[in-house]
Nucleic acid binder design. Structure first.
Lengths: 120, 120
DNA sequence: CCATCATATGCCCATATGGGAATGCGTCAA
DNA sequence: TTGACGCATTCCCATATGGGCATATGATGG
């Protein structure tokens, strides 16, 4: 096998720097392909290809607008990534002495978060 | 060019499922290569290769222990990933209560970004 | 209906990947 | 010293990538 498909995962999709840049740009609102391409200094076909990957993974969404296709952010797919990485937070917070504080923050985050609670 | 090197980035390193599993296992403490390989159902050479990538990106650390090499987590490198993805949190948390925070970040992003912008 | 703009695709290529298998080493036990 | 163990490295291979370029498809304006 070769490397896993970029479209297999949000993890794989955001492994590409340019795709990350696209997502960041889209945070500012919907944009047509050409606009993205210009702003990121890439050719239109390249932008289209990256957008396709992002679309297949469900990180962006398209909306037809005349002869343009407006791409918009659909960040839901990033949530799993955030959660997975978050599972390591305690390991990069330097002092293990403050483990209790960590737990507190966890609890607090829980209160703020949606009422739905399940843990991994 | 082909795809970016897996060793170029924490983003790229964790794009591989098996590498993610390794990291999760290491959360439980240091482990020798063979142990990891067995636990994850992969061959020893495979484990070694993955560990090498993780090492080069700085996500794991080795410690010589007799004829074993104990690999341990060094999660610091995951922090940037967590932060980057966290920048999208407001977009998947449906509560608009945080709208103000969103606006703030938007402003900040604008300052950082190039002033050049035209619209469709 | 035709010229043009906005996108998506198709091709070709160089590259690095992850898998498999074999092997090179350093370390420890007898 | 010899043999077994633990791990890293090297080769070979199939695959999909991202880049560049040309072109097909669609919608728009005259």
């Amino acid at each position: 096998m070769a490397r896993a498909a970029t479209t297999s995962d949000a993890f794989n999709a955001i492994a590409e720097p340019q795709r990350r840049e696209i997502l960041v740009l889209l945070r500012g609102g919907e944009r047509p392909v050409t606009d993205l391409a210009r702003n990121l200094g890439m050719t239109q076909p390249q932008a289209s290809k990256h957008l396709r990957v992002l679309r297949e993974v469900g990180l962006v969404r398209v909306r037809e607008a005349g002869r343009q296709r407006l791409y918009g952010l659909d960040a839901g797919g990033l949530r799993p990534v955030h959660e997975w990485v978050g599972g390591f937070e305690q390991f990069w917070s330097e002092s293990f002495d403050r483990l209790d504080q960590y737990v507190q923050e966890l609890k607090q985050a829980r209160q703020e978060g949606s009422p739905d609670d399940d843990d991994q």
